[in-house]
């Protein structure tokens, strides 16, 4: 594998982010007449302005934020567990977050205070990360990690169904698809507002852990002997992953494979350094989810596909290829 830091990576990703954001903003059931929007800035009643500001903009912003969270959390988890398969979806952290969000949402807690829904996601995600950490062990083998992930995913998704079953709501059962596959359709600025504080806090935790993740390349004792308080640093990352994944999942469901695929694509371009991987993975995650959301709207503008279907269609084959390659490298 060629692995060399590329100077053009960040400018390229920022440009891609801008383009993907614009593409997502412009895709929808109808072409948006931009002239209408701008000429009628003062005219509040314009439908195009309403559609752009209240429907498409919140949706695209949320897609970007969710993607950034998942890409960043994936990069951080892979660094922490020193395992290239440790995406938040594959090891069950996303489903645990969804479980936390489902419980707070369907049993009415989410209505009590704005922060309770993302908090529910956060608690679920934190439990998920801790569970995978203690179940798979620190020096997790690929097999151990995947097995633990399968178990956590199975338990979490069946508990989601159970919780939805118990909620006295005629729509709850059909909404299981949203929680397991994810979507940003029809999200409003309120969804963005409740998730953003948690997401930003998580980004700070994770982006500040770059140096520690670098040192962790040499094992836990290696990192300790390089001056890092491993318990505190690890807790920092667990909290960061819980904040980002918890907030993202509680407002968009479980959009799979982003946290797995994105760090993989970026890794060779940053010389495989776990610390340098973080920021580009966040941006590339945003690009991936924005493109997936644009694809969702282009493929079926009326009866919308779930976002997770598109990311899984990209991520699934990628994962197969990864497994294939790892088998051959192991031999």
């Amino acid at each position: 594998m060629r692995s060399k830091p590329r100077w053009w990576l960040l400018p390229f990703l920022v440009l891609a982010l801008l383009l993907a954001f614009l593409l997502d903003l412009l895709s929808g059931p109808f072409p948006l007449k931009l002239s209408e929007v701008f000429s009628s800035g003062a005219r509040k009643g314009s439908v195009d302005a309403l559609v752009l500001l209240e429907i498409r903009l919140p949706r695209s912003i949320l897609a970007g934020l969710v993607g950034a969270c998942l890409g960043l959390a994936g990069a951080a988890m892979q660094g922490l567990l020193r395992n290239p398969l440790a995406g938040p979806g594959l090891v069950g952290v996303s489903n645990c977050a969804a479980l936390g969000a489902v419980i707070t949402f369907y049993f009415g807690f989410a209505g009590l205070a704005w922060y309770l829904l993302p908090l529910g996601g956060l608690v679920g995600a934190a439990l998920g990360v801790m569970l995978i950490f203690f179940l798979a062990g620190r020096e997790a083998s690929v097999l151990g990690l995947i097995l633990a992930g399968v178990a956590i995913n199975a338990v979490a998704s069946s508990l989601i169904s159970l919780a939805l079953n118990f909620s006295e709501n005629p729509y709850a059962m059909s909404e299981i698809v949203y929680w397991l596959l994810g979507s940003v359709a029809d999200s409003s600025i309120r969804d963005v507002a409740i998730a953003v504080p948690f997401m930003f806090a998580g980004w700070l935790c994770l982006l500040g852990s770059g140096r520690f993740l670098d040192a962790l390349s040499f094992g836990e004792e290696g990192a300790q002997s390089m001056g890092f308080n491993i318990g505190r640093q690890r807790a920092f990352i667990i909290v960061g992953v819980a904040l980002t994944v918890g907030a993202a999942v509680s407002v968009s469901g479980n959009v799979g494979f982003v946290g797995l695929v994105v760090p993989h694509l970026i890794r060779p371009l940053v010389g495989a350094e776990p610390g340098r991987l973080l920021l580009p993975s966040a941006i590339a995650g945003a690009v991936m989810v924005l493109l997936a959301d644009a694809a969702v709207q282009l493929l079926s503008p009326q009866q919308e596909l779930k976002l997770g279907v598109v990311t899984a269609l990209v991520g699934g084959p990628f994962f197969l290829w990864l497994v294939y390659r790892m088998r051959h490298e192991a031999v």
Partner: peptide
């Protein structure tokens, strides 16, 4: 007054 995503859609600000 129930909590569901289906109904949340009816309360979209737009």
């Amino acid at each position: 007054n129930m909590n569901s995503l289906a109904q949340k859609k009816l309360r979209h600000p737009a």
